[in-house]
Nucleic acid binder design. Structure first.
Lengths: 355, 355
DNA sequence: GTGAAAGCGCTAACAA
DNA sequence: TTGTTAGCGCTTTCAC
């Protein structure tokens, strides 16, 4: 009997038989190459394809073609709104290029991250995007050896031969800090990330430079370090605000921490921005809805993701740095704009993608 | 020369050669079955494996074994905190069972969702978890025909032969509503989701039942429908609060909308909970940080995800319904507990997983 | 422009 | 217990 294999649809052989041609030709038309096919033949094949409802098996194709059309995305914490936004943007960019993304969430666990990266490699991803805690030396070696293209997003990875997509952390942070000074503040503290974390360290550098340039005393402008989450931001702010001479403004290195700061201000009996002004970094969409709205330095996530995917798929391993933009709302002392519904798609910009 | 193929590591044949045995035996030891292997042979193979640094190619394995050890996850919106939390939990559960997740984000676009589901099928996922807008009839047919196990998480999918993991939406919503009444409210409105959306419709039903049971007039307890995002929640709240006789409390069907409500209250000159009390549904971790803290009905996301993966991989297509729990904070009028750092892992519960 | 056939790296009968 | 070998479904060289 010619019963189709159960559980799966027709194969290339079925199509070839029905179209009265060879499997090679079917392949040529399905893939639109690499060899030309006569119009008549192509038509017969196409007819057979949709008469049978044939769909190519991507696994078999991957094995033969040695390409999976898949990109691995390793994120440190998918529940972090900035990172989930990056995940959305990467998925969209990959999808636009007909690739699927294998998601790996390390849950901020370096060990786990190593394992996940190896699994992704075993699954033969065509490329790897890392928004990761940071792989250890052994994993870096393995990545370099594997020859799989890698792009480090948001932060470079030491020792890794990879493209890099980051933003102007120093500049953005400095701008935010000066903006605070523009509101008349002289005691501008910084709530930064864990010292080894690159993006927040850079932002701290920007704050510190700005503070120095404006001649503000280091004693009145303290830094405090905290993990990248609301709870840690909350605790750091409580510590800061309970000092004898608390700051009148604080630059927070991530929005996620800043939400904790906002809540801490209230819990310690302060008003934002009158008693403490706040500006942070990342520019996630939730920032529009806090009370007051959170002023933040926004990263062009869609463009960054598109660039990352492009570099991964056909780029040389360059390092690209995107500009950022301070978006003011109520938390710094500027007028708080009316809330608008969140934008789901980036505004058209002539041609798609690219900075 | 015996140079290894460039770009890839050693294969099963290399290992067999070095171990002086056959490829089948290598397969048996690597997979720990399906046939037994003598201890001595196994040791030689293992030795060869790590002398060569051999790693099985999952693509080739998938083709031969007809299993990809991969599960597809389709979410309607990965940037929605509830859904990204589900994504985290599903990834963790799948990972614990040695599976990788292929992430597909439909960005609340039904068309796109169909395409994504088909792509996942083409990639031969072992199972599909849907937290989706809802596939159309054609896709449902294709899913049923494909024989790929599916579990619908959070909401059932009409006409689909699939397991279902949901929560007690009606009960939770009713409890939330009664809680509001317990604070003395008699004008309890509801901000619900788009009417076709199942979970929010169920919650609305719970609210409506509770309101009726308490004998509260329908005129003083209006419903308004809005999309599941902060902006829509904001606008719905503004509409509600600008009425001639505004409600004194509102049950909001999702946390995401509720954050918009909180902001809208402030923008229309109200205090929460004194002028308007708010309780919502989902129980995402961000709810602890708003001002005031958001009282919410919490879903046991980790358990739900674990169950979903179990059902997918070896379960019969049951329908399981998890209980939910009201967690009170400041927004309903209860005391607002001190903020704590976010928990990354579920507390131990004797044995892992399960309701 | 088309077809035959040799893999891609692994699994799992089946035979020894 | 181990080895031989026929696929898994597709791509692609090479000959026609």
């Amino acid at each position: 009997m010619t019963a189709r294999r159960q559980g799966r649809g027709p194969t290339r052989a079925d199509v070839a038989r029905l179209a009265g041609t060879s499997t090679a030709v079917v392949s040529y038309v399905v893939n639109d190459g690499p060899r030309p096919v006569a119009a008549a033949t192509r038509a017969r094949v196409l007819g057979a394809v949709n008469q049978l409802g044939y769909r190519p098996d991507r696994i078999a194709r991957a094995l033969a073609a040695r390409r999976t059309e898949t990109v691995g995305l390793v994120v440190a914490d998918i529940t972090n709104p900035f990172m989930s936004d990056v995940a959305r943007a990467v998925e969209a960019a990959a999808s636009a290029r007909d690739h699927t993304v294998l998601l790996a969430n390390s849950a901020v666990d370096r060990q786990r991250e190593q394992v996940l990266i190896e699994q992704l490699l075993d699954r033969r991803v065509d490329g790897l995007i890392l928004l990761a805690v940071g792989p250890g030396a052994a994993t870096v070696r393995e990545l370099n050896r594997s020859g799989v293209p890698v792009v480090a997003l948001d932060r470079p990875v030491g020792g890794l031969r990879a493209a890099t997509v980051t933003v102007d952390n120093v500049g953005g942070a400095a701008e935010a800090t000066m903006h605070l000074a523009g509101h008349g503040h002289r005691r501008i503290a910084c709530i930064s990330g864990p010292p080894p974390l690159w993006p927040t360290a850079e932002r701290e550098k920007g704050w510190s430079t700005a503070v120095a340039e404006m001649g503000l005393g280091r004693g009145s402008c303290p830094v405090v370090h905290a993990s990248i989450d609301r709870g840690a931001g909350y605790e750091a702010a409580v510590r800061l605000l309970n000092r004898a001479r608390p700051p009148s403004a604080v630059f927070v290195t991530t929005d996620e921490q800043a939400f904790g700061v906002l809540r801490a201000a209230v819990d310690t009996g302060r008003q934002v921005p009158d008693d403490v002004a706040v500006v942070s970094f990342d520019g996630i969409s939730q920032a529009a809805f806090s009370v007051p709205g959170l002023s933040s330095v926004v990263q062009p996530v869609d463009q960054m993701a598109a660039k990352a995917v492009d570099l991964l798929l056909d780029g040389p391993p360059e390092r690209v740095v995107f500009p950022v933009e301070l978006l003011t709302r109520g938390s710094c002392g500027c007028p708080d704009p009316v809330v608008r519904a969140k934008r789901r798609t980036p505004p058209p910009r002539g041609t798609a993608g690219g900075p």
